[in-house]
Design a protein around this nucleic acid. Sequence first.
DNA 1: TCTGGGGTCCTAGGACCC
DNA 2: TCTGGGGTCCTAGGACCC
Length: 419
Amino acid sequence: MYALVDCNSFFCSCERVFRPDLKNRPIVVLSNNDGCVVSATKELKDLGIKVGDPYFKVKKICKAKRAAIFSSNFSIYGNMSDRVMNTIKEYSPRSQVYSIDEVFCDLKGVRDIEKHVRMIKQKVLMHTGIPVGIGVARTKVLSKLANHIAKQSSKSKGVVCLTNEELEDIALKRVPISKVWGIGKRSSEKLEIIGIKTAYDFKVYDNEALIQKMLSKVGVQIKHELMGIECFDIADKESAKKTIMCSRTFKDSIVNKDDLKQAISNYINYASLKLRRQGALCTSLSVFARTNAHKIYQPKYYMHEQIKLVNPTNDTRKLISQGVKLIDRGFKDGYEYKKAGAVLGNFFGQSEYQINFLEEQDSVEDQKLMKTVDAINMKIGSDIVRSASCGFDNKVLKIKKNLKSPRYLTSFDELLRFS
DNA sequence: TCTGGGGTCCTAGGACCC
DNA sequence: TCTGGGGTCCTAGGACCC
Protein backbone atom coordinates (compact mmCIF):
# COMPACT_ATOMS: atom_id res chain seq x y z
CA MET A 1 0.00 0.00 0.00
CA TYR A 2 1.07 3.50 -0.81
CA ALA A 3 0.03 6.81 0.70
CA LEU A 4 0.16 10.07 -1.16
CA VAL A 5 0.45 12.96 1.25
CA ASP A 6 -0.34 16.31 -0.33
CA CYS A 7 -0.38 19.74 1.30
CA ASN A 8 -3.60 21.69 0.98
CA SER A 9 -3.17 24.89 -1.09
CA PHE A 10 0.45 24.71 -0.08
CA PHE A 11 1.75 28.23 -0.79
CA CYS A 12 -1.37 29.77 0.75
CA SER A 13 -1.00 27.56 3.82
CA CYS A 14 2.62 28.69 4.19
CA GLU A 15 1.58 32.34 4.14
CA ARG A 16 -1.08 31.56 6.72
CA VAL A 17 1.47 30.04 9.07
CA PHE A 18 3.15 33.44 9.32
CA ARG A 19 -0.11 35.36 9.34
CA PRO A 20 -2.48 33.59 11.75
CA ASP A 21 -4.86 36.54 11.44
CA LEU A 22 -5.70 35.26 7.95
CA LYS A 23 -7.06 32.01 9.35
CA ASN A 24 -10.54 32.58 8.00
CA ARG A 25 -9.72 34.67 4.97
CA PRO A 26 -9.30 33.38 1.43
CA ILE A 27 -5.77 33.68 0.05
CA VAL A 28 -4.17 33.74 -3.39
CA VAL A 29 -0.46 33.59 -4.16
CA LEU A 30 0.74 35.04 -7.46
CA SER A 31 3.65 34.16 -9.73
CA ASN A 32 6.61 36.29 -10.79
CA ASN A 33 5.53 39.86 -11.61
CA ASP A 34 2.15 38.97 -10.09
CA GLY A 35 1.12 37.49 -13.43
CA CYS A 36 -0.67 34.25 -12.63
CA VAL A 37 -2.36 32.51 -9.73
CA VAL A 38 -0.02 29.80 -8.43
CA SER A 39 -2.00 28.87 -5.33
CA ALA A 40 -5.51 29.58 -4.06
CA THR A 41 -7.50 28.45 -1.04
CA LYS A 42 -10.45 26.11 -1.44
CA GLU A 43 -13.24 28.66 -1.20
CA LEU A 44 -11.71 30.52 -4.16
CA LYS A 45 -11.17 27.35 -6.15
CA ASP A 46 -14.82 26.48 -5.55
CA LEU A 47 -15.69 29.79 -7.21
CA GLY A 48 -13.85 28.69 -10.33
CA ILE A 49 -10.40 30.18 -9.76
CA LYS A 50 -7.75 27.82 -11.08
CA VAL A 51 -4.01 27.65 -10.62
CA GLY A 52 -2.51 29.18 -13.76
CA ASP A 53 -5.27 31.73 -14.32
CA PRO A 54 -3.94 35.19 -15.16
CA TYR A 55 -4.55 37.41 -12.18
CA PHE A 56 -6.27 40.21 -14.08
CA LYS A 57 -9.04 37.81 -15.03
CA VAL A 58 -9.84 36.78 -11.47
CA LYS A 59 -9.05 40.03 -9.71
CA LYS A 60 -12.71 40.97 -9.31
CA ILE A 61 -13.68 37.76 -7.53
CA CYS A 62 -10.65 38.03 -5.26
CA LYS A 63 -11.52 41.58 -4.28
CA ALA A 64 -15.17 40.70 -3.75
CA LYS A 65 -14.19 37.87 -1.40
CA ARG A 66 -11.70 40.10 0.44
CA ALA A 67 -8.94 37.65 -0.42
CA ALA A 68 -5.44 38.34 0.87
CA ILE A 69 -3.06 38.61 -2.10
CA PHE A 70 0.59 37.55 -1.89
CA SER A 71 3.51 37.62 -4.29
CA SER A 72 5.26 34.27 -4.20
CA ASN A 73 8.24 33.67 -1.94
CA PHE A 74 9.82 30.40 -2.97
CA SER A 75 12.62 30.34 -0.45
CA ILE A 76 10.06 30.27 2.35
CA TYR A 77 8.01 27.59 0.62
CA GLY A 78 11.12 25.49 0.08
CA ASN A 79 11.95 25.75 3.74
CA MET A 80 8.46 24.84 4.89
CA SER A 81 8.47 21.94 2.44
CA ASP A 82 11.65 20.54 4.01
CA ARG A 83 10.06 20.70 7.44
CA VAL A 84 6.91 18.92 6.27
CA MET A 85 8.92 16.22 4.48
CA ASN A 86 11.21 15.63 7.46
CA THR A 87 8.24 15.18 9.75
CA ILE A 88 6.68 12.66 7.39
CA LYS A 89 9.94 10.74 7.00
CA GLU A 90 10.06 10.16 10.75
CA TYR A 91 6.93 8.04 10.50
CA SER A 92 7.48 6.66 7.01
CA PRO A 93 11.14 6.04 6.25
CA ARG A 94 10.68 4.74 2.71
CA SER A 95 9.23 7.68 0.87
CA GLN A 96 9.64 9.66 -2.31
CA VAL A 97 9.31 13.41 -2.39
CA TYR A 98 7.43 13.97 -5.61
CA SER A 99 7.11 17.73 -5.64
CA ILE A 100 7.39 20.69 -3.31
CA ASP A 101 4.08 19.74 -1.67
CA GLU A 102 3.66 16.01 -2.28
CA VAL A 103 5.28 12.83 -1.04
CA PHE A 104 4.60 9.13 -1.63
CA CYS A 105 5.03 6.81 1.34
CA ASP A 106 5.44 3.06 1.34
CA LEU A 107 3.18 1.61 4.05
CA LYS A 108 4.60 -1.89 3.98
CA GLY A 109 4.34 -3.46 7.43
CA VAL A 110 1.87 -0.95 8.83
CA ARG A 111 -1.01 -2.71 10.62
CA ASP A 112 -3.79 -0.19 11.09
CA ILE A 113 -3.24 1.93 8.01
CA GLU A 114 -6.01 4.46 8.50
CA LYS A 115 -4.96 5.12 12.08
CA HIS A 116 -1.33 5.47 11.03
CA VAL A 117 -1.94 8.01 8.27
CA ARG A 118 -4.31 10.05 10.41
CA MET A 119 -1.55 10.21 12.97
CA ILE A 120 0.87 11.48 10.29
CA LYS A 121 -1.65 14.14 9.28
CA GLN A 122 -1.93 15.22 12.89
CA LYS A 123 1.83 15.34 13.45
CA VAL A 124 2.47 17.43 10.33
CA LEU A 125 -0.16 19.94 11.39
CA MET A 126 1.28 20.12 14.91
CA HIS A 127 4.91 20.47 13.85
CA THR A 128 4.54 22.76 10.85
CA GLY A 129 1.04 24.25 10.83
CA ILE A 130 0.43 22.86 7.33
CA PRO A 131 -2.79 20.89 6.70
CA VAL A 132 -2.44 17.85 4.43
CA GLY A 133 -4.72 15.41 2.63
CA ILE A 134 -3.83 11.72 2.31
CA GLY A 135 -4.88 9.06 -0.20
CA VAL A 136 -4.02 5.39 0.34
CA ALA A 137 -4.23 2.54 -2.18
CA ARG A 138 -2.40 -0.38 -3.80
CA THR A 139 -0.55 1.63 -6.45
CA LYS A 140 0.72 5.15 -6.87
CA VAL A 141 -1.87 6.09 -9.50
CA LEU A 142 -4.65 4.74 -7.26
CA SER A 143 -3.32 6.61 -4.24
CA LYS A 144 -3.30 9.84 -6.28
CA LEU A 145 -6.90 9.15 -7.12
CA ALA A 146 -7.76 8.49 -3.48
CA ASN A 147 -6.08 11.77 -2.60
CA HIS A 148 -8.15 13.55 -5.22
CA ILE A 149 -11.31 12.28 -3.57
CA ALA A 150 -10.04 13.19 -0.12
CA LYS A 151 -9.75 16.78 -1.30
CA GLN A 152 -13.32 16.90 -2.53
CA SER A 153 -15.24 14.99 0.08
CA SER A 154 -15.70 16.77 3.37
CA LYS A 155 -16.93 13.50 4.87
CA SER A 156 -13.47 11.96 4.48
CA LYS A 157 -11.85 14.54 6.78
CA GLY A 158 -8.81 14.59 4.55
CA VAL A 159 -8.08 10.86 4.41
CA VAL A 160 -9.32 8.28 1.89
CA CYS A 161 -8.13 4.66 2.08
CA LEU A 162 -8.99 2.33 -0.77
CA THR A 163 -8.19 -0.90 1.02
CA ASN A 164 -9.99 -3.36 -1.25
CA GLU A 165 -11.04 -3.62 -4.88
CA GLU A 166 -14.68 -2.96 -4.13
CA LEU A 167 -13.82 0.43 -2.64
CA GLU A 168 -11.47 1.08 -5.54
CA ASP A 169 -14.21 0.54 -8.09
CA ILE A 170 -16.62 2.84 -6.27
CA ALA A 171 -13.93 5.52 -6.34
CA LEU A 172 -12.94 4.90 -9.96
CA LYS A 173 -16.52 5.36 -11.11
CA ARG A 174 -16.66 8.77 -9.47
CA VAL A 175 -13.56 10.16 -11.11
CA PRO A 176 -13.62 11.50 -14.69
CA ILE A 177 -10.84 10.18 -16.91
CA SER A 178 -9.26 13.62 -17.23
CA LYS A 179 -8.56 13.66 -13.48
CA VAL A 180 -6.46 10.50 -13.55
CA TRP A 181 -2.78 11.18 -12.88
CA GLY A 182 -0.91 11.19 -16.19
CA ILE A 183 -4.01 11.59 -18.36
CA GLY A 184 -4.08 15.19 -19.50
CA LYS A 185 -6.24 17.17 -21.86
CA ARG A 186 -5.13 15.55 -25.12
CA SER A 187 -5.27 11.99 -23.88
CA SER A 188 -8.64 12.35 -22.21
CA GLU A 189 -10.09 13.79 -25.43
CA LYS A 190 -8.86 10.77 -27.32
CA LEU A 191 -10.17 8.33 -24.72
CA GLU A 192 -13.57 9.97 -24.63
CA ILE A 193 -13.92 9.35 -28.36
CA ILE A 194 -13.73 5.60 -27.75
CA GLY A 195 -16.26 5.84 -24.95
CA ILE A 196 -13.97 6.04 -21.92
CA LYS A 197 -15.41 8.69 -19.64
CA THR A 198 -14.39 7.62 -16.15
CA ALA A 199 -11.34 6.06 -14.53
CA TYR A 200 -13.40 2.88 -14.17
CA ASP A 201 -14.16 2.77 -17.93
CA PHE A 202 -10.43 2.96 -18.55
CA LYS A 203 -9.65 0.21 -16.04
CA VAL A 204 -12.05 -2.29 -17.65
CA TYR A 205 -11.38 -1.38 -21.29
CA ASP A 206 -10.09 -4.52 -22.92
CA ASN A 207 -8.25 -3.37 -26.06
CA GLU A 208 -4.80 -2.69 -24.68
CA ALA A 209 -3.15 -2.63 -28.09
CA LEU A 210 -5.28 0.36 -29.02
CA ILE A 211 -4.36 2.16 -25.80
CA GLN A 212 -0.69 1.52 -26.56
CA LYS A 213 -1.17 3.00 -30.01
CA MET A 214 -3.08 6.05 -28.79
CA LEU A 215 -1.22 6.90 -25.60
CA SER A 216 2.06 4.98 -25.90
CA LYS A 217 3.64 2.83 -23.24
CA VAL A 218 2.82 5.26 -20.46
CA GLY A 219 -0.92 5.01 -21.16
CA VAL A 220 -0.82 1.24 -20.73
CA GLN A 221 1.12 1.58 -17.50
CA ILE A 222 -1.46 3.99 -16.08
CA LYS A 223 -4.22 1.54 -16.98
CA HIS A 224 -2.36 -1.28 -15.24
CA GLU A 225 -1.88 0.83 -12.14
CA LEU A 226 -5.64 1.48 -12.06
CA MET A 227 -6.08 -2.31 -12.23
CA GLY A 228 -3.86 -2.66 -9.18
CA ILE A 229 -0.73 -3.80 -11.05
CA GLU A 230 2.29 -1.86 -9.87
CA CYS A 231 4.25 -0.15 -12.64
CA PHE A 232 5.70 2.84 -10.82
CA ASP A 233 7.89 1.98 -7.89
CA ILE A 234 8.98 4.35 -5.15
CA ALA A 235 12.36 5.69 -6.08
CA ASP A 236 13.63 6.52 -2.63
CA LYS A 237 16.95 7.99 -3.57
CA GLU A 238 16.50 11.56 -4.59
CA SER A 239 17.68 11.61 -8.15
CA ALA A 240 19.72 14.39 -9.69
CA LYS A 241 17.99 16.79 -12.02
CA LYS A 242 18.46 16.00 -15.69
CA THR A 243 17.77 19.51 -16.82
CA ILE A 244 18.28 22.73 -14.98
CA MET A 245 16.73 25.94 -16.13
CA CYS A 246 16.51 29.52 -15.07
CA SER A 247 14.06 31.62 -17.04
CA ARG A 248 12.11 34.76 -16.31
CA THR A 249 9.45 36.91 -17.82
CA PHE A 250 10.27 40.58 -17.52
CA LYS A 251 7.84 42.94 -15.92
CA ASP A 252 8.56 45.64 -18.48
CA SER A 253 9.75 44.94 -21.97
CA ILE A 254 13.48 45.13 -22.43
CA VAL A 255 14.62 47.29 -25.32
CA ASN A 256 18.27 47.63 -24.43
CA LYS A 257 20.83 45.06 -25.46
CA ASP A 258 23.02 45.65 -22.46
CA ASP A 259 20.14 44.99 -20.11
CA LEU A 260 19.50 41.75 -21.91
CA LYS A 261 23.15 40.74 -21.66
CA GLN A 262 23.16 41.49 -17.97
CA ALA A 263 20.04 39.42 -17.45
CA ILE A 264 21.45 36.47 -19.39
CA SER A 265 24.65 36.58 -17.38
CA ASN A 266 22.70 36.47 -14.15
CA TYR A 267 20.60 33.53 -15.29
CA ILE A 268 23.65 31.58 -16.38
CA ASN A 269 25.21 32.21 -12.99
CA TYR A 270 22.15 30.96 -11.22
CA ALA A 271 21.78 27.85 -13.38
CA SER A 272 25.50 27.08 -12.96
CA LEU A 273 25.14 27.41 -9.21
CA LYS A 274 22.33 24.86 -9.15
CA LEU A 275 24.40 22.56 -11.33
CA ARG A 276 27.39 22.72 -8.96
CA ARG A 277 25.22 22.26 -5.88
CA GLN A 278 24.12 18.94 -7.26
CA GLY A 279 27.73 18.08 -8.02
CA ALA A 280 26.89 17.36 -11.63
CA LEU A 281 28.33 18.04 -15.05
CA CYS A 282 26.34 19.08 -18.06
CA THR A 283 26.56 18.15 -21.69
CA SER A 284 24.97 21.18 -23.23
CA LEU A 285 23.96 24.70 -22.54
CA SER A 286 21.21 26.61 -24.24
CA VAL A 287 19.95 30.14 -24.25
CA PHE A 288 16.65 31.40 -25.51
CA ALA A 289 14.78 34.66 -25.71
CA ARG A 290 11.44 35.50 -27.20
CA THR A 291 8.84 38.20 -27.63
CA ASN A 292 5.45 38.11 -25.96
CA ALA A 293 3.73 34.96 -27.26
CA HIS A 294 0.31 36.22 -26.23
CA LYS A 295 0.40 39.10 -28.69
CA ILE A 296 -0.42 37.11 -31.76
CA TYR A 297 -0.64 40.00 -34.23
CA GLN A 298 2.72 41.52 -33.44
CA PRO A 299 6.08 40.61 -34.90
CA LYS A 300 7.66 37.63 -33.26
CA TYR A 301 11.19 36.85 -32.43
CA TYR A 302 12.46 33.61 -31.00
CA MET A 303 16.09 32.89 -30.64
CA HIS A 304 17.51 29.65 -29.39
CA GLU A 305 21.15 28.61 -29.35
CA GLN A 306 22.63 25.46 -27.97
CA ILE A 307 26.16 24.24 -27.56
CA LYS A 308 27.38 20.83 -26.61
CA LEU A 309 30.03 20.67 -23.98
CA VAL A 310 30.89 16.98 -23.96
CA ASN A 311 29.41 13.83 -25.33
CA PRO A 312 29.49 11.25 -22.59
CA THR A 313 27.50 8.61 -24.41
CA ASN A 314 29.85 8.45 -27.39
CA ASP A 315 33.32 9.33 -26.33
CA THR A 316 33.54 8.54 -22.71
CA ARG A 317 31.65 5.30 -22.46
CA LYS A 318 34.36 3.59 -24.45
CA LEU A 319 37.10 5.13 -22.38
CA ILE A 320 35.39 4.30 -19.12
CA SER A 321 35.08 0.70 -20.22
CA GLN A 322 38.83 0.76 -20.68
CA GLY A 323 39.22 1.91 -17.11
CA VAL A 324 40.11 5.52 -17.89
CA LYS A 325 39.09 8.10 -15.33
CA LEU A 326 37.67 11.20 -16.91
CA ILE A 327 37.54 14.71 -15.73
CA ASP A 328 35.48 17.42 -17.34
CA ARG A 329 38.23 19.85 -18.22
CA GLY A 330 35.87 22.31 -19.74
CA PHE A 331 33.96 22.74 -16.58
CA LYS A 332 37.11 23.08 -14.57
CA ASP A 333 39.00 25.74 -16.41
CA GLY A 334 36.22 27.76 -17.90
CA TYR A 335 37.04 26.75 -21.45
CA GLU A 336 33.46 25.73 -22.11
CA TYR A 337 32.25 28.98 -20.69
CA LYS A 338 34.18 30.68 -23.45
CA LYS A 339 32.35 28.55 -25.93
CA ALA A 340 29.11 29.62 -24.29
CA GLY A 341 30.26 33.18 -24.80
CA ALA A 342 30.67 32.50 -28.49
CA VAL A 343 27.09 31.30 -28.65
CA LEU A 344 25.89 34.49 -27.10
CA GLY A 345 28.12 36.26 -29.57
CA ASN A 346 26.11 34.77 -32.41
CA PHE A 347 22.96 35.96 -30.79
CA PHE A 348 24.17 39.48 -30.34
CA GLY A 349 25.90 39.63 -33.68
CA GLN A 350 29.39 39.97 -32.28
CA SER A 351 32.34 37.75 -32.76
CA GLU A 352 32.68 37.03 -29.11
CA TYR A 353 30.80 37.89 -26.02
CA GLN A 354 32.49 37.66 -22.69
CA ILE A 355 30.44 36.34 -19.83
CA ASN A 356 31.46 37.47 -16.41
CA PHE A 357 31.12 34.58 -14.08
CA LEU A 358 30.91 35.99 -10.64
CA GLU A 359 32.46 33.11 -8.76
CA GLU A 360 33.16 35.30 -5.79
CA GLN A 361 29.48 35.68 -5.09
CA ASP A 362 29.24 31.96 -4.48
CA SER A 363 29.63 30.67 -0.96
CA VAL A 364 32.83 29.04 0.18
CA GLU A 365 31.03 25.75 -0.01
CA ASP A 366 30.15 26.32 -3.65
CA GLN A 367 33.70 27.27 -4.47
CA LYS A 368 34.87 24.09 -2.85
CA LEU A 369 32.39 22.18 -4.92
CA MET A 370 33.81 23.81 -8.02
CA LYS A 371 37.25 22.62 -7.06
CA THR A 372 36.17 19.11 -6.35
CA VAL A 373 34.79 18.92 -9.83
CA ASP A 374 38.20 17.52 -10.84
CA ALA A 375 37.53 14.68 -8.53
CA ILE A 376 34.17 13.89 -9.96
CA ASN A 377 34.41 11.12 -12.46
CA MET A 378 32.49 11.53 -15.62
CA LYS A 379 29.22 9.79 -15.13
CA ILE A 380 27.14 8.23 -17.81
CA GLY A 381 23.44 7.79 -18.45
CA SER A 382 20.92 9.23 -16.11
CA ASP A 383 23.48 10.62 -13.73
CA ILE A 384 24.43 13.27 -16.25
CA VAL A 385 22.61 16.54 -16.40
CA ARG A 386 21.83 16.92 -20.05
CA SER A 387 21.59 20.64 -20.20
CA ALA A 388 21.64 23.79 -18.21
CA SER A 389 19.34 26.27 -19.78
CA CYS A 390 19.36 29.92 -19.15
CA GLY A 391 16.60 31.79 -20.77
CA PHE A 392 13.89 34.31 -20.98
CA ASP A 393 10.34 34.18 -21.90
CA ASN A 394 7.92 36.81 -23.11
CA LYS A 395 8.12 40.51 -23.36
CA VAL A 396 11.74 40.77 -24.31
CA LEU A 397 11.01 43.79 -26.38
CA LYS A 398 8.44 46.43 -26.69
CA ILE A 399 7.04 46.63 -30.18
CA LYS A 400 5.11 49.72 -30.99
CA LYS A 401 4.05 49.04 -34.54
CA ASN A 402 0.76 47.27 -34.94
CA LEU A 403 0.84 44.77 -37.73
CA LYS A 404 -2.17 42.95 -39.06
CA SER A 405 -0.41 39.65 -39.41
CA PRO A 406 2.51 38.12 -37.58
CA ARG A 407 5.89 38.68 -39.04
CA TYR A 408 8.93 36.74 -38.02
CA LEU A 409 12.09 38.68 -37.53
CA THR A 410 15.42 37.03 -37.97
CA SER A 411 17.77 38.95 -35.75
CA PHE A 412 17.92 40.90 -32.59
CA ASP A 413 19.03 43.98 -34.52
CA GLU A 414 16.08 43.80 -36.84
CA LEU A 415 13.83 43.57 -33.84
CA LEU A 416 15.48 46.62 -32.30
CA ARG A 417 14.81 48.59 -35.47
CA PHE A 418 11.18 47.65 -35.13
CA SER A 419 10.83 48.89 -31.64
C1' DT B 1 -3.29 47.22 -19.77
C1' DC B 2 -2.33 42.85 -17.23
C1' DT B 3 -0.98 35.65 -19.06
C1' DG B 4 4.85 31.73 -14.31
C1' DG B 5 8.79 28.76 -13.72
C1' DG B 6 10.17 24.92 -13.40
C1' DG B 7 10.57 19.63 -14.58
C1' DT B 8 9.93 14.32 -16.74
C1' DC B 9 9.36 10.77 -20.28
C1' DC B 10 8.26 8.89 -24.92
C1' DT B 11 8.28 8.61 -30.02
C1' DA B 12 9.32 9.43 -34.81
C1' DG B 13 12.53 10.42 -38.04
C1' DG B 14 17.04 11.59 -39.81
C1' DA B 15 22.05 10.89 -39.97
C1' DC B 16 25.35 7.79 -39.84
C1' DC B 17 27.75 3.24 -39.61
C1' DC B 18 28.94 -1.59 -41.22
C1' DT C 1 24.03 2.58 -62.60
C1' DC C 2 21.90 -0.53 -59.70
C1' DT C 3 20.95 -1.83 -54.42
C1' DG C 4 19.65 -4.57 -48.37
C1' DG C 5 19.35 -5.07 -43.81
C1' DG C 6 20.72 -4.26 -39.46
C1' DG C 7 22.00 -1.21 -35.96
C1' DT C 8 23.05 3.23 -32.94
C1' DC C 9 22.68 7.86 -31.69
C1' DC C 10 20.70 12.34 -31.64
C1' DT C 11 17.11 15.81 -32.02
C1' DA C 12 12.67 17.95 -32.15
C1' DG C 13 8.35 17.86 -30.64
C1' DG C 14 4.46 16.25 -27.97
C1' DA C 15 2.29 15.18 -23.76
C1' DC C 16 2.23 15.27 -19.11
C1' DC C 17 3.17 16.91 -14.09
C1' DC C 18 3.25 20.56 -10.04
